[in-house]
Simulated scan of single mutants.
Amino acid sequence: MTRTLYIVSTTVFWLVVFGLGMTSALWNPGEQGDAQAQGKAVTLAELARHAAPGNCWMAIRGSVYDLSAYLPAHPSPPDIVLPWCGKEATEAYNTKTKGRPHAPYADELLAKYRIGTLAKAH
């Protein structure tokens, strides 16, 4: 009886784990996203219109991110980040303006806020 219970409970456990893994995109809106928005080309002029704390877009490594919702949670003081709202901020992001790179976790977190790509200037 104990062996049967063990086999059944282990099987159910792995089915639940597998099922949750398959449906995690439904639960995490940061991983979802409108496919059209993910590929949206944002010009420098449009980027510049989003330069306020409550409306903060940044271009980093060719992608554009809407960081408005994240700014209150950012570990550094706002005056470190806010000057880069509405701008191309790759160098600032890569060096944290102090010559130190962000941790890999920051790159993973950044991906959740991607809204498009920076349009090439003609």
Rank of each mutant, 00 (worst) to 15 (best):
L5C: 02
A69S: 15
V16F: 08
A121L: 13
A119R: 05
A92P: 01
S76I: 12
T97E: 14
L67F: 09
H122D: 15
A69C: 04
S76N: 15
Y70M: 05
P101T: 14
V12H: 04
Y65R: 02
P53D: 08
E108N: 14
A51R: 09
L109K: 10
A25Y: 11
A45P: 03
T11R: 11
A37H: 01
D79T: 05
N55L: 10
P53R: 08
A41L: 08
C85R: 06
L82F: 10
Y93K: 07
Y70S: 06
W84D: 09
T4G: 02
K120E: 13
L26F: 09
K40M: 05
S76L: 14
A69I: 09
A37R: 09
Q36N: 14
L15T: 10
I115Q: 00
M58N: 01
M22L: 14
T11C: 13
H50F: 06
L67C: 09
L118Y: 04
Q32F: 08
D79P: 01
T2D: 13
L118S: 04
V8G: 09
C56D: 11
K98I: 15
R100P: 05
P83F: 07
P77L: 06
T95A: 13
A111N: 05
A48P: 01
S68Q: 07
E46V: 01
A25V: 08
K120I: 07
L20V: 13
T23L: 13
A73Q: 11
D79K: 06
A52Y: 14
Y6N: 12
W84Y: 15
L15H: 03
G62R: 01
T43D: 03
Y93G: 03
P72L: 00
R61W: 01
G30P: 04
L82P: 02
H50S: 08
G33K: 01
V16C: 04
E88R: 10
A41R: 04
I115H: 00
L20A: 13
M22H: 12
G86T: 04
L110F: 03
P72G: 00
Q36W: 09
A37F: 05
W84K: 09
A92H: 04
V8Q: 11
R100H: 12
G99K: 10
A92S: 11
A59W: 00
V12A: 13
A89T: 05
W14F: 15
P53E: 05
C85V: 11
T90L: 06
H50A: 09
